[in-house]
Structure formats: structure tokens, C-alpha cells
């Protein structure tokens, strides 16, 4: 594989990509309306299938609502763990706190998505669940928007964390968030001035990520 081409813009981008961390502890300092707008501005330029722009956002600042959301997640995590029981219940325990960290952030951006088109479901009837979701493309596109939002936060000196764990309580969270009941919740993203600078969790080498037949010509 050839070396990634370096140069001004690429180096700057890579520094942002590598420097972004999942931040789970925040200073109480508020996040300005202007900064929240900057995050959404970055998110809305993500690619999406047929330019559907399936992402929607709900911004939560009130302590009272954040607490209700955290309580709903804690309760749902307890119920879910108890219902599976045994090893899974024990194994989940250390993660419980990771589902609830959003409460302490000054702002929580909830990311919601339009339901995927039935057209893709019909055309992709013979595919795996993941491939069908990938063919529809809404969820991957929302993921791209989330990454843009996270990078924008990092570039603004803010910390943020993509959290899917809280979805255990998705029905309750959607009710607390408001908005059309026909949108699905995809993630909660706490945002604030970081109160921690986490080490970068290791990544696999690019070489290890390559699969499939080697070679350039036809097999």
C-alpha cells in the first residue's frame, strides 16, 4: 500500500481525526448557542443517500430534563440486565456508568433519524440485516453527521462523546425529548468543556484492516 499522501490540508485533518477523544467528564462552564449552531452546521454537510438528510437533532440544556433522561437510562439498564441475568448481567455492571455520563454535560445533543425507506427493504430482500441497513443508508449517513459533529466539537475545543448505550431507554428518552414520534433515536452526544484528557485507545494498523484477495488485476 502506498503511503498516505501528506500535505497541509491532509495533515491538519489527520491531526483533528487523531486528536478527537470521547470525553465523558465536563466542566460546568456553559456551551454557547453559537457553538451549538456551529456543531449542527458541521453535521448538516454530511453525505446521505439521495441527499435525504435523514438526521434530526434535539438539544437539551435543562438539568431537570437531563436528570430524568439519566434516571430513565439507569432504570432501563437495570431492567434489561436483570431480564438477561447471569453472566451478561454481571458483565454489564461496569458499563452502567458509561451509559449515564451524559447527565453532567452542559449540553446534550440527541441525534434522531428518519425511518429508512421501504424501497431499500424491498429491493434488498435477500441481503443480511446489516447489508439492508447499509443499502438504505440512513443510519450510516447519520453516523457520518455525528462524526462531523464530534470533529467540529473537537476543533472548537469542546469535548463530546458518541453514546448509544442510553438507547436502552429509547422510548422514554424520545418522550422526554419531544418531536415527532416517527423519528428514531440514534445517539446522545454530551458536549462541554473537557474536564479530562483521555489517552487515545489503541487502533489496529491499517494493514490489519485489509481483507480479501490480494493483487491488482483480475483473479
Amino acid at each position: 500500500m502506498s503511503e498516505p499522501r501528506s500535505g497541509g490540508a491532509y495533515d491538519e485533518l489527520l491531526a483533528l481525526l487523531r486528536g478527537r477523544r470521547s470525553v465523558r467528564r465536563f466542566l460546568p462552564e456553559p456551551v454557547s448557542e453559537e457553538d451549538v449552531r456551529r456543531l449542527l452546521e458541521a453535521a448538516r454537510w454530511a453525505p446521505s443517500p439521495t441527499n435525504r438528510q435523514p438526521w434530526r437533532f434535539a438539544v437539551v440544556r435543562e438539568t431537570e430534563r437531563k436528570t430524568r433522561m439519566r434516571e430513565a437510562v439507569a432504570e432501563a439498564a437495570r431492567t434489561a440486565a436483570a431480564s438477561v441475568g447471569g453472566m451478561v448481567e454481571e458483565g454489564m455492571a461496569p458499563y452502567a456508568a458509561m451509559f449515564e455520563a451524559f447527565e453532567q454535560a452542559p449540553v446534550v445533543v440527541a441525534v434522531l433519524a428518519r425511518r429508512p425507506s421501504r424501497v431499500a427493504a424491498r429491493l434488498g430482500a435477500g441481503l443480511s440485516d446489516t447489508e439492508r441497513a447499509a443499502l438504505a443508508g440512513d443510519l450510516p449517513a447519520v453516523g457520518a453527521a455525528i462524526q462531523s459533529l464530534l470533529l467540529a466539537a473537537h476543533a472548537l475545543g469542546l469535548g463530546a462523546c458518541w453514546m448509544s448505550g442510553p438507547l436502552l431507554a429509547a422510548p422514554d428518552l424520545r418522550a422526554i425529548l419531544g418531536g415527532p414520534p416517527t423519528l428514531d433515536l440514534v445517539a446522545l452526544i454530551p458536549v462541554g468543556r473537557p474536564a479530562e484528557t483521555p489517552e487515545a485507545p489503541p487502533r489496529r494498523d491499517a494493514e490489519q484492516l485489509l481483507v480479501g484477495r490480494k493483487g491488482t488485476g483480475p483473479a
Binding site: S117, P180, P181, T182
Partner: peptide
């Protein structure tokens, strides 16, 4: 409402799918 990601309570039977609800 499901298809367009809007609130069913806000969808009137007389709403135009394209002209009022923004369907493509």
C-alpha cells in the same frame, strides 16, 4: 408520518404530500 419522519398528529388528510409535507 413514518415515511417522512413527521408527527402523525400534524398530518391532515388534506395535506399535499409534496406541496405541504415536502415529500420528494
Amino acid at each position: 408520518a413514518e415515511s417522512l419522519g413527521v408527527d402523525p398528529a400534524g398530518v391532515s388528510p388534506d395535506a399535499g404530500l409534496v406541496l405541504d409535507l415536502g415529500a420528494d
